[in-house]
Structures are given as C-alpha cells and as structure tokens.
Lab assay of single mutants.
Amino acid sequence: QGDIVVALYPYDGIHPDDLSFKKGEKMKVLEEHGEWWKAKSLLTKKEGFIPSNYVAKLN
C-alpha cells in the first residue's frame, strides 16, 4: 500500500509523463525511484512522476 504525500510546493511537469500538482495537493505514492516517484493525485486521479523533494509523507 502506497504512502500518502502532500505537496510542499507547486510543480509544473516538464516531461509528458510528469504529474503536475499544486501546493497542498495530496497524492498516493505508487513507486519510489530515487529522486522521482510515480504517484497518483487524489484530486485529479492522474498518474505521473513527481520530484520527491517537493512532497512530504503524511503519517
């Protein structure tokens, strides 16, 4: 089961498979690959890669 993270900063995706998000948006982490994680937005239901240093895990 994936962790839920919250965006600390907004992110505008650079690549087509990036997931753009707004500050405060919550996402479910699907896979962790070093600095880039695959996640699904709980708001938009879209999936893509996010920079892990832009988010914090919720406990």
Score class of each variant (00 low, 15 high):
Y54E: 03
K23E: 09
G13E: 04
L8Y: 04
I14R: 12
I50S: 00
P51L: 05
L30I: 10
S20T: 10
H15P: 13
W36V: 10
K38H: 08
Y54H: 10
D12Y: 12
P16E: 10
H33C: 14
M27R: 00
V29W: 01
L42E: 06
G2F: 13
E25V: 02
E25H: 03
K46V: 07
L42G: 01
E25G: 01
K46E: 09
I4H: 05
V55A: 04
G13L: 03
Q1D: 12
L8T: 04
D18R: 09
S41Q: 03
H33D: 09
V55C: 08
N59T: 11
Y9K: 12
H33K: 11
N59E: 14
D12N: 14
K38N: 05
I14C: 13
E32K: 15
A39G: 05
K23P: 06
W36L: 09
W37H: 09
K46Q: 10
L30A: 03
F21Y: 01
L19A: 02
D17M: 10
T44N: 06
D12M: 12
L58F: 10
Y11W: 14
S41T: 03
L42C: 14
P51H: 06
K26V: 14
P10M: 08
W37D: 03
K26D: 02
E47K: 07
V29C: 04
E31Y: 09
P51F: 04
L8V: 07
F21V: 05
K28I: 15
E25L: 01
I50G: 01
S41L: 04
K22G: 08
S20L: 04
E32T: 13
H15W: 11
K40W: 09
K28H: 10
H33M: 10
I14M: 11
E31I: 08
E25F: 01
K40E: 10
S41I: 04
F49K: 08
T44W: 02
M27H: 01
L43T: 11
I50Q: 00
T44S: 09
H15L: 09
V6C: 09
A56H: 10
N59C: 15
D18S: 12
K38C: 12
K26A: 08
A39R: 00
D12E: 14
V55P: 02
I4A: 04
L43E: 11
A39W: 01
P10V: 06
K22R: 12
L43A: 10
S20M: 05
D17L: 11
L30Y: 07
V5C: 13
Y11P: 01
S52Y: 08
L42N: 03
K22N: 07
F21S: 00
V5S: 02
I50T: 00
V6M: 07
F21A: 01
L58A: 08
M27Y: 01
K38D: 02
G2S: 11
E25T: 03
I4C: 08
Y9Q: 10
Y54K: 08
A56N: 06
P10L: 06
A56I: 15
Q1T: 15
K46R: 12
A7F: 01
A7E: 02
A56W: 08
G13Q: 06
H15E: 07
V5W: 13
N59L: 11
E25P: 00
N53F: 09
E31N: 07
F49W: 15
S20Y: 04
N53T: 12
V29N: 01
D17P: 07
F49I: 08
E25N: 02
G13H: 03
K40H: 09
G34I: 04
V5E: 01
P51Y: 04
S41G: 02
A56E: 13
F49D: 04
G2E: 10
M27D: 00
K45N: 14
K45E: 14
E25M: 02
K57D: 06
L43G: 06
G13Y: 02
D12G: 08
S20R: 07
V6L: 06
D12W: 12
I50C: 03
N59Y: 11
W37F: 15
D18T: 13
G48R: 00
D17R: 14
T44L: 02
E32Q: 14
N53C: 14
K22I: 13
V29E: 00
S20A: 08
K46M: 12
A56V: 15
I50R: 00
H15G: 13
S41C: 04
Q1P: 13
L58T: 09
E47F: 06
P16N: 07
L58Y: 10
L58C: 13
S20P: 09
Y9V: 07
K28Y: 14
I14P: 07
A56T: 13
I4R: 03
V29R: 02
D12K: 14
G13T: 05
D12A: 12
G34A: 06
A39M: 04
E25A: 03
A56R: 14
L43D: 10
D3Y: 15
A39V: 14
Q1M: 13
K22A: 09
D3Q: 14
K45V: 05
D18C: 13
D18K: 08
Y11S: 03
F49P: 00
S20N: 06
K45C: 15
K38E: 06
D17K: 11
L30M: 08
Q1H: 12
S52K: 15
A7M: 02
F49S: 05
F49V: 07
A7H: 01
K28S: 08
K26R: 14
G34L: 05
I14N: 10
F49Q: 07
A39N: 01
L42W: 03
L42H: 04
V55E: 02
W37A: 07
K38T: 07
K45L: 15
T44Y: 03
G48A: 01
K28T: 10
G13I: 03
H15S: 11
K57P: 12
P10W: 08
N53L: 09
I4Y: 08
L43S: 11
D18M: 12
H33L: 11
K46H: 08
E32H: 12
A39P: 00
E35L: 14
H15T: 09
D12R: 13
N59K: 11
K28L: 15
K28N: 06
K28Q: 15
V29L: 15
V55Q: 01
H33W: 11
L42F: 07
L19Y: 03
K26L: 15
P10F: 07
S41F: 00
S41K: 05
E35N: 13
G13K: 08
E31H: 08
G24E: 05
L43N: 07
I4S: 03
L42R: 03
E47C: 12
Q1V: 15
F21Q: 02
S20D: 06
P10I: 05
K38G: 03
S20K: 06
L19F: 04
G2P: 10
V29S: 01
D17W: 15
G13V: 04
K28C: 13
W37N: 04
L43Q: 09
K28G: 04
Q1Y: 14
W37I: 14
L30S: 05
L42D: 04
G2D: 11
K57Q: 09
H15Q: 10
K46A: 10
E47I: 14
A7L: 01
G48N: 01
F21G: 00
D3A: 14
K57H: 11
T44R: 03
A39D: 02
G24P: 00
F21R: 00
N53W: 15
H33E: 08
G13D: 02
H15I: 05
G24C: 12
Y54F: 12
K40N: 04
E35Q: 13
E31Q: 10
V5M: 05
H33S: 10
V5H: 05
L19T: 02
Y9C: 15
L58H: 07
K40T: 08
E47Q: 10
I50A: 02
K38F: 15
G24Q: 03
D18Y: 13
E25Y: 02
K28P: 00
S52T: 06
K22Q: 12
K38Y: 15
G48M: 00
D3K: 14
D3E: 12
T44E: 03
L42Q: 05
L43C: 12
G13N: 04
V55N: 01
A39K: 01
F49T: 07
F21E: 00
L19G: 00
E35W: 14
N59Q: 11
K26M: 15
Y11V: 02
E25W: 03
P51E: 04
K23F: 07
E35C: 15
I4L: 09
Y11H: 05
V55W: 02
L58M: 11
D17N: 13
K26H: 14
F21W: 01
A56Q: 13
K45H: 15
V29Y: 02
G24M: 04
N53Y: 09
D12H: 13
L30F: 06
Y9D: 04
